[in-house]
């Protein structure tokens, strides 16, 4: 900068100006600072506590063993606990949920932004928000009592027709309720509003000028969406998907109701069986300190995974062209 300043006027130093804050402002600064800071401290405490109290079980089991062992038995001496069986279930359920929900959610978002009238749009936005506000418990009981039975023929049909795909096969005469597939469907419906609202948000920000330009060039509506809206909203779709994945990974109550919560690594997602980290924690309350420490460790692993997913979501969204103003 100094190089650009002409020689005639030597660089000047700014004057130091102090504005003594008023007393109210000093109180204001202190109060807001301490509330912000205490939130930070609070979370640090939660994180540290999770770490230290996981220490007991992790120390005894060993981190690597804990991460790679499938079974969870505290009735034997020494206890054999591991998180792999839970993690596999968590990831499988979340992936099924997201795979099912993303196409529907994105299309529904398109319907809201580009196919519905202004009035219908407002109603639909409200309904999607409402769907997001419904507690996961209600989705859980709905899935547990209604969907679970309704889905059995579906599962059977899929396994009959697509059984040649390894993970869709079922053994004859196996119970098809309480499967990871059904849990995935329920969680998928639960995360549907997340994907829909994030995608809607970015689609609605697609530049109207470019949209009109596409239509003016004689493109059909779908052509316009394919060339303008979808490329523009790509970041939002990916970000919304990651966000939904994060939510699906942490979902507790629905999977606690739907899955038997017995840790295992199964490749038959249509069959009875499966466990997820959060569901497993929810169904194993009131244990001894060692169990709780183990559950803490499992919770910590889950927390780290959801944190990573969420952070990736926000990075993806903020890097994309459409994501600048989008709140996750």
């Amino acid at each position: 900068m100094d190089a650009e300043t002409p020689v005639a006027s030597p660089p000047r130093r700014p004057r130091v100006v102090v504005d003594e804050p008023a007393r109210v402002d000093r109180v204001f600064d202190a109060v807001t600072f301490w509330s912000g800071f205490s939130v930070l401290v609070l979370l640090s405490i939660v994180g540290l506590f999770l770490l230290t109290s996981s220490g007991d079980s992790l120390g005894q089991t060993g981190l690597w063993t804990f991460l790679t062992r499938v079974e969870w038995r505290t009735d034997v001496q020494p206890a054999r606990i591991g998180v792999l069986g839970l993690l596999v279930g968590t990831v499988v359920v979340a992936v099924i949920a997201v795979v099912l929900a993303v196409p529907v959610g994105v299309l529904a978002a398109l319907f809201i932004t580009d196919y519905s009238s202004a009035r219908l749009r407002r109603v639909l936005i409200g309904l999607v928000d409402l769907l997001a506000a419904i507690p996961s418990l209600l989705f859980g009981v709905w899935g547990f009592v209604l969907l679970s039975n309704q889905m059995v023929p579906v599962s059977r049909w899929i396994s009959d027709h697509f059984g040649w795909i390894p993970f869709l096969a079922t053994e004859p005469n196996r119970d098809l309720t309480g499967s990871m597939f059904i849990a995935g469907v329920v969680v998928g419906i639960m995360v549907l509003p997340i994907i829909t609202s994030v995608a809607r948000e970015v689609f609605s920000q697609a530049p109207p000028g470019e949209k009109e330009a596409a239509l003016a060039l004689g493109s059909t509506r779908w052509g316009m969406i394919r060339t303008v809206v979808l490329p523009y909203g790509k970041g939002g779709i990916v970000g919304g998907t990651m966000l939904a994945l994060g939510r699906a990974l942490g979902e507790t109550i629905a999977v606690a109701l739907l899955l038997p919560q017995v840790p295992l690594v199964s490749k038959n997602i249509l069959e009875y069986g499966g466990a997820t980290v959060s569901g497993f924690i929810a169904t194993h309350s009131g244990g001894d300190p060692f169990t709780v420490s183990g559950l803490m460790a499992a919770g910590l692993v889950l927390f780290i995974i959801t944190l990573g997913t969420n952070m990736m979501a926000s990075v993806v969204v903020s890097r994309s062209r459409s994501g600048v103003g989008v709140e996750l």
């Binding site: 939130v39 979370l43 640090s44 939660v46 959060s278 420490s293 803490m296 910590l300 889950l302």
Partner: peptide, 19 residues
């Protein structure tokens, strides 16, 4: 930290208070 905290699985919140 606030963003991170909002990703805390709700079951872990309960487990934390319990522990």
């Amino acid at each position: 930290f606030v963003d991170a905290m909002s990703g805390l699985p709700s079951i872990v919140c309960g487990l934390f208070i319990f522990a």
